[in-house]
Design a protein around this nucleic acid. Structure first.
Length: 495
RNA sequence: GGUCUCGUGGCCGAGCGGCUAGGCAGUGGUCUGCAAAACCAUCUACAUCGGUUCGAAUCCGAUCGAGACCUCCA
């Protein structure tokens, strides 16, 4: 088996399947982005960090990737009974701002946070309001195919009709229509719908609405699920490789996307559905109402009551990747502290390997093949449904070996060292997207530290330990950690 | 109420029929003027009760417990 063949747990089929791109060497990915009505919370970040890692791995293997992640800036209702206020418009009234101001503010915030987590920007980041025409044409297509109906200026998807013509509604979330009917509640303002599980494609807007557009059915705005269907098909085609998002979007959002796409184009829009799991805080779900939540910036500044200190985005990213994306991950101060230490250890070895001047000496065959097989296992694990925790475990095993070499001798061949350097550094930087947290590390800073260490060395040589310890302790206080080797001294700058 | 998922050592977290996951913490050494870092060695596991199997954290059933979705959410 080739360990660069990717296997993906397809949540549509519930099976791990070998990934076969529609077009050889190309991969199209759509991930549901945020609704920009408030600051991104950490759970969102986990999803985007994971899909960033997925995209990075495809790049690493040489695929040409088109990664589309939308910005929802209209159409997302406060409740999903297709009745109620638009999230953006509600927040706009609350803050006395224009809807576009809200969108701008939180889009910028989102980008800033994503940047700090070292995620690569998507290749296309379309907005819902920028694709009203595409959404209207999609509604027209669905109407023409007979899977929607118009009532009082609104258009609804006709789930019953869809089922009657041999389609499945619930294939992704494993629900059947009886369950849905049994579980549905009586909500106000649903009298326009023929059936409770029908969902809005286009909503009529009354005078109180500030965000609205002309359409063949009068003035209104698009339904939430529609934008993803319209934009994914526009940029990736009616059928594309991978669709991702958080678990919680499986139903109803992704289910509706499938129905819409089939209703418009008569085919399932996606080959592989990938869903990342939730993030909990201290064992409980994050929720703004109970205060059980952390915002990214609170993490970076340490200002949350759930934390005893601040954590850098790299540490948080590393922490997230230490768990598999498909499981629930619990976030806690203690777990973060443990991760931070491990992260430092990993990154120290990264620096060591990256800058090591390797000279081939003797070769220990056993060590040599151990390094080779660990390098190979990084690909095997990453290809097996993006198993980042196992990849990290292999990297740590390499860390031990490398540190051992460093304190004894490097008993591997030239070519093995090159493989190690390429694989270890490649996985850390390019695949996992981890970066050393050293900030403001200008060459001037380094030169100054080296000068100070030079003075300390002199003091030590003169057995003036009072001076040498003072230098060391004061440097530690300002975040420079000293590591004395046999004949050299190295240092690490902590933030 | 309906539909699912999960219960792993002091903590986090992989594995999902036989082979040491890994990280953090702990313990004992080595190195060092002392530290730190690093190295070597080492201790704690698979919720409970049954069943299948030569063999089960891993499969099946029951019980208890936790969580998610069905309602805005990544």
């Amino acid at each position: 088996m080739n360990n660069k063949e990717i296997y993906i747990n397809n949540t549509l089929t519930g099976k791990k399947e070998k990934f076969k791109p529609i077009t050889e060497n190309f991969v199209g990915i759509y991930v549901c982005g945020p609704t920009v009505y408030s600051e991104v919370h950490l759970g969102n970040c986990r999803t985007f960090v994971f899909f960033d890692t997925l995209v990075r791995y495809f790049h690493f293997l040489g695929y040409k990737v088109r990664y589309v992640r939308n910005i929802t800036d209209v159409g997302h209702l406060v409740n999903d009974a297709d009745e109620g206020e638009d999230k953006i418009a509600k927040k706009a009234k609350l803050e006395q701002l224009e809807p576009m101001e809200i969108v701008q503010k939180y889009t910028l915030n989102f980008h800033e946070v994503m940047h700090s987590f070292n995620t690569l920007p998507p290749d296309i980041e379309p907005t819902a309001t920028g694709h009203i025409n595409e959404q209207i044409s999609m509604v027209e297509k669905i109407l023409k195919n007979g899977f929607a109906y118009e009532v009082n200026g609104s258009v609804y998807f006709d789930v019953k009709k869809f089922l009657e013509s041999g389609n499945d509604y619930g294939e992704l979330s494993g629900r059947n229509i009886e369950d849905l009917l049994a579980g549905s509640r009586d909500l106000d303002g649903q009298q326009d719908k023929k059936s409770p599980q029908d969902f809005a494609l286009w909503k009529n807007a009354d005078d109180s609405h500030i965000m609205k557009w002309d359409s063949p059915w009068g003035v209104g705005f698009p339904g939430w699920h529609l934008e993803c269907s319209a934009m994914s098909s526009k940029y990736l085609g009616n059928k594309f490789d991978i669709h991702g998002g958080g678990m919680d979007l499986k139903f109803p959002h992704h289910e509706c996307e499938i129905a819409q796409a089939k209703g418009a184009n008569h085919e399932h829009p996606v080959n592989y559905w990938v869903h990342s799991n939730m993030l909990t805080l201290n064992g409980k779900r994050m929720s703004k109402s109970t205060g059980n939540t952390i915002l990214p910036f609170e993490l970076f500044t340490g200002s949350s009551s759930h934390l005893t200190k601040s954590f850098s985005p790299s540490v948080v990213r590393f922490f997230m990747l230490q768990a598999h994306y498909s499981g629930v991950l619990d976030f806690s101060n203690e777990a973060l502290i443990a991760s931070e230490k491990g992260f430092r250890k990993l990154m120290n070895a990264f620096d060591l390997i990256k800058h090591h001047d390797f000279v081939e000496q003797h070769i220990d065959e056993q060590q040599n093949s151990k390094v080779e097989s660990l390098c190979s296992s990084c690909f095997t694990f990453m290809s097996d449904d993006f198993n980042t925790p196992k990849v990290i475990a292999s990297l740590f095993e390499l860390v031990s070996i490398v540190n051992h070499f460093n304190s004894t001798s490097w008993s591997i061949s030239n070519s093995t060292f090159e493989l190690l350097q390429k694989t270890f550094c490649g996985f850390i930087e390019e695949v996992l997207g981890l970066e050393n947290e050293i900030t403001g590390n200008s060459s001037l800073t380094n030169q100054l530290i080296e000068l100070v260490l030079e003075l300390r060395k002199d003091a030590k040589a003169n057995k003036n330990y009072q001076i040498s310890d003072k230098i060391r302790d004061e440097l530690v206080k300002i975040g420079v950690e000293i590591k004395d080797g046999k004949d050299t001294t190295s240092y690490t700058i902590k933030n």
